[in-house]
Design a protein around this nucleic acid. Structure first.
Length: 427
RNA sequence: GGAGAGAUGGCUGAGUGGUCGAAAGCGGCUGACUGCUAAUCAGUUGUAGGUGCUUCUGUACCUACCCCGGGUUCGAAUCCCGGUCUCUCCGCCA
């Protein structure tokens, strides 16, 4: 959520930046008007309340006949307050509702653009393999090896579900363990095991709600929400707290399954396991001071890339343009792994395996997460960041397709072998 | 799932309709004193919002907040209703 004070004080700057995110200047004016109205109403209500409080204090000392005299007049003021205040509350709610769906201000470094074409590649890693044979897509490899069972996934749960079996399931589990160990032991993260269902407030805190409500699974009876990413529970972990500056930065890593309706993606990416309603992900979350968040983002991206390096997967890191990036972050890097056969007959494609973002104080303001810059100082909002490290099914695709051999077997990347009983091959 | 108890400031803990934003103690901060540590004394010590002055630091006034949301009342920490959470006992259970 943007700071309404910032909008009030620098409306032109806000308009310019939100313009890049597709928000019309008139929307900002509307916010300003609502803000002005709300403040006028507050002043009015508080004035009346002060009046009634003062009179009540006098009444406390007055005799009974005096009380009877004033009672009617005071009640009239009270009724007026009730009326004005319910009006004010409605206006304020409207303002907040609007603020909750207003995008964040993009960083100056965000490339201006409308489509993937406008993303800027900042780094590449590994090298794209030259095949001496025609590489197969992962769904064919997986079915042939008996490690991926899409048909039965559909039988159990419908489209966009699949079953991993034997070495397929083991490979996924190996990847999760490997990534968690890498981030905790080499990169200094603290591992978190969070709830996979959370309260509504958490989703509002990280900004999946209210805007993307139709993408999240929801138990109506208990009002539990299935996490669409570990970002939600982990970023909300310190909700409402004031951290000491000495506690920052906080680096958390968590493995969770992720649940998404994928309504807006209906019909897209239907082949294979690239996009499902349920997938696994290892997620990194950072909390830090405003001064350090730029550097924290770079190191976060570096941590995510190191997984690709370790697994020997060819990847590129792109700075995502204004039209493609998440609306609520200030800057976003995506890491894409090359999958040589993922489009079937059409060949290969770059698969997004990680998205690393700086949210500035946008989420912290919603979550009420602050820190004290120095002992006794006024609390300020922290900056929050998160990035996948990495998303499992797409890494699985990357491994199957890049490490496939002509006989249909899969060579297991060396770093994973200790997690796979020392095996070097899936066949 | 059943029965009961409870939720007050950083902490402990008073307070059952009228200067209660809230006693007291602890802790924190400031000053005095003691040649160190400690002790003693005095003062001070929540958060958010609005408005004016000041303008880059504050200051004055006002408002709200004693789990959350409603209600009663001229006036609610205190009374009523709904909810959340915690604890105890019973049941069930990986």
């Amino acid at each position: 959520m943007l700071d309404i004070k910032l909008i009030r004080e620098q409306p032109e700057m806000v308009k310019a930046k939100l313009g890049l995110m597709g928000v019309d200047a008139s929307e900002v004016d509307a916010l300003l008007a609502m803000d002005r109205e709300a403040r006028e109403a507050i002043t009015e209500v508080e004035k009346l309340r002060a009046e009634i409080n003062a009179a009540s204090k006098l009444l406390a000392k007055a005799g009974p006949e005096e009380r009877d005299n004033q009672r009617t007049a005071l009640r009239a003021i009270g009724d007026r307050i009730t009326e004005l205040d319910s009006n004010r509350a409605a206006n304020e709610q409207a303002l907040i509702s609007k603020l909750l769906v207003t995008p964040n201000l993009p960083d100056d470094r965000v490339p201006v653009g409308t489509s993937e074409e406008d993303n800027v590649t900042v780094r590449t890693g590994g090298s794209i393999r030259e095949f001496a044979f025609k590489p197969l897509p992962h769904w064919e490899l997986g079915e042939k090896l008996g490690i991926l069972d899409i048909e039965r996934g559909i039988k159990l749960s419908g489209s966009r579900f699949y079953v991993l079996r034997g070495a397929g399931a083991a490979l996924q589990r190996a990847l999760i363990s490997f990534m968690l160990n890498l981030h905790t032991s080499k990169h200094g993260y603290t591992e978190i095991y969070p709830p996979f269902m959370v309260k509504r407030d958490c989703l509002v805190g990280t900004a999946q709600l209210p805007k993307f409500e139709d993408n999240v699974y929801h138990d109506i009876e208990e009002d539990y929400w299935m996490v669409p990413t570990a970002e939600v529970p982990v970023t909300n972990l310190h909700r409402g707290e004031i951290l000491e500056a000495s506690q920052l930065p906080v680096h958390y890593v968590a493995y969770t399954p992720c649940f998404r309706r994928e309504k807006m993606s209906a019909g897209r990416d239907v082949r294979g396991i690239k996009r499902g309603h349920q997938f696994d992900k290892v997620e990194m979350v950072r909390l830090c001071t405003p001064e350090t968040s730029n550097a924290e983002l770079e190191s976060l991206v570096d941590n995510a890339e190191s997984v690709c390096h370790a697994l020997g997967l060819p990847f590129r890191t792109v700075l995502v343009c204004s039209g493609e990036k998440g609306e609520f972050n200030t800057l976003q890097y995506d890491i894409e792994v090359y999958a040589p056969a993922s489009k079937g007959e059409e060949g290969g494609e770059w698969l997004e395996v990680s998205s690393c973002s700086n949210f500035g104080d946008f989420q912290a303001r919603r979550i009420g997460l602050r820190y004290r810059p120095s002992p006794g100082a006024k609390p300020e909002f922290v900056h929050t960041l998160n990035g996948s490290g990495l998303a499992l099914p797409r890494v699985l695709i990357g491994i199957l397709e890049n490490y496939q051999n002509e006989d249909g077997s899969i060579t297991i990347p060396e770093v994973l072998r200790p997690y796979m009983g020392g095996e070097a091959l899936i066949r």
